[in-house]
């Protein structure tokens, strides 16, 4: 019994060390990742609509993501801004002008 507990302790301890190592290695990237799908969708939808001048149906298909499901998109047609939501995070991109196109805003 004692030996079994010790074995479990070693395994659990090793896993904890492994997870800590992984976080230390990729921590920043892992912490940042939730922003990526919404940022991608906000920026590329904005650019598709107002930098490239395409319509909503075209741009909806253009930015469609297959891996991470998105949780909706708010489009401010008059202000030329778009807010996308994915992984419980929202990101906004805004059209800055004809030559400048779109840029992510936080």
């Amino acid at each position: 019994m004692r030996r079994a507990l010790r074995a479990i302790g070693v395994i659990v301890g090793s896993l904890v060390v492994l997870v800590l190592l992984l976080l230390a290695w990729g921590g920043q990237a892992v912490r940042d990742f939730p922003w990526m799908p919404s940022s991608y969708e906000a920026k590329e939808y904005c650019s598709c609509r107002w930098t490239s001048g395409r319509d909503d149906a075209f741009c909806d298909a253009f930015v469609h993501q297959t891996v991470v499901p998105t949780q909706g998109r708010t489009v401010d047609e008059a202000g030329r801004a778009v807010t996308a939501r994915a992984l419980w995070v929202s990101t906004t991109a805004r059209w800055a002008g004809e030559r400048e196109g779109c840029v992510l805003v936080r």
Partner: peptide, 16 residues
């Protein structure tokens, strides 16, 4: 995408 420098540059930490 998680460990991609280019995705982080364009869409997360790097965008500002």
């Amino acid at each position: 995408p998680v460990f991609s420098s280019v995705m982080a540059m364009l869409y997360t930490r790097g965008a500002p």
